[in-house]
Design a binder for these strands. Structure first.
Lengths: 165, 165
DNA sequence: CTCGTTTGGTTGATGTGTCAACCCGGTCAG
DNA sequence: CTGACCGGGTTGACACATCAACCAAACGAG
């Protein structure tokens, strides 16, 4: 009953440790971000990308590429962020609007970035240490690559497109 | 500008690889679960716990301890799962209801577990390999411990309890 | 006994993610 | 020109998570 694809004890155990660590770390980081600065992880991600871009403005689908979000999620979230004054949708002359970070958004991310980085260092980077961290990075890339190649052949994202025909 | 708590290039890079891997793996696993078996990760987690218990029945707060969910999340989710027929709340003679897995729930998890395990193996366990996996498990436990101890001293979960005084 | 607290659990409001459907402007085949 | 089909983006409905407030039984000290 354990020959198939099953995980043995050790594997099971490591996998569960990993899952728990993940959840714990994620919630820890997000709670601090939220409580101290009123930003969600999602807000943070968007603001990081915008603030790192030269002009402080990007097209929505560039953000989508960078964050790997679905376009509808992006659209919803950007609307909410605009309502909160963190970004602005600028319709300039081009046919698609650009997303620009506002003063307020810039201030928000500058305020929270150091504390956030410090936490990542304290609870992740420093516990791994340089060597193991490097290994983790490599393995992570391998996993992403493997899933990517798997999906390329196996799960073309819901093509069958017939709209309303 | 990089002396404070800041992350250097390599650290930054590893951390981002890790984040991406995480998201990718999680969404990959969850999509398959959802599409092939109609279960969310949350459903899966509950059903795993119930099906692993001797009697197939647990109190809600035991599930809470096992999954680390907030009690309100648990309550909401159990209600939805009951509506879908995956579990049952049995009010027997004790004052608090027990959560029991149904035939249908049992069938669902038995159906999806092998495929799920196979994916975890293919995209995670086998890519790490036994040694690195073991290391990851240890580091994960360390991180959880560190966050735990940090929170014990630093962030007692919002005590101030005054109800409506 | 009675009041205050703790424990286990529910509820409702709100914010967020996902899916499917749709819209609109280009592009390309015929 | 017409009509299929993109790519980029929005919308609405729904599932889900979180928070705060609440409820009821059990416990403990006075």
């Amino acid at each position: 009953m354990s020959k198939g694809p099953w995980l043995d004890e050790d594997e099971q155990q490591a996998w569960r440790s990993y899952l728990l660590m993940n959840r714990t770390l994620e919630t820890h980081l997000e709670r601090h971000l939220q409580r101290e600065f009123g930003l969600s992880k999602s807000d943070f991600e968007i603001l990081v990308n915008l603030s790192e871009s030269e002009s402080g403005r990007m097209r929505a689908f560039e953000l989508g590429r960078a964050t790997q979000w679905e376009k509808s999620r992006m659209s919803h979230h950007l609307s909410r962020m605009e309502k909160r004054g963190l970004i602005r949708k600028e319709s300039c002359q081009a046919r698609y609007p650009e997303i620009a970070i506002t003063e307020e958004g810039m201030a928000a991310i500058k305020a929270c970035a150091p504390a956030h980085a410090a936490r990542v260092r304290e609870f992740f980077v420093d516990i791994f240490g340089p060597d193991r961290l490097a290994v983790l990075g490599e393995v992570s890339d391998d996993i992403v690559a493997k899933i990517g190649q798997h999906c390329a052949t196996d799960c073309p994202p819901e093509v069958s497109g017939l709209d309303a025909t």
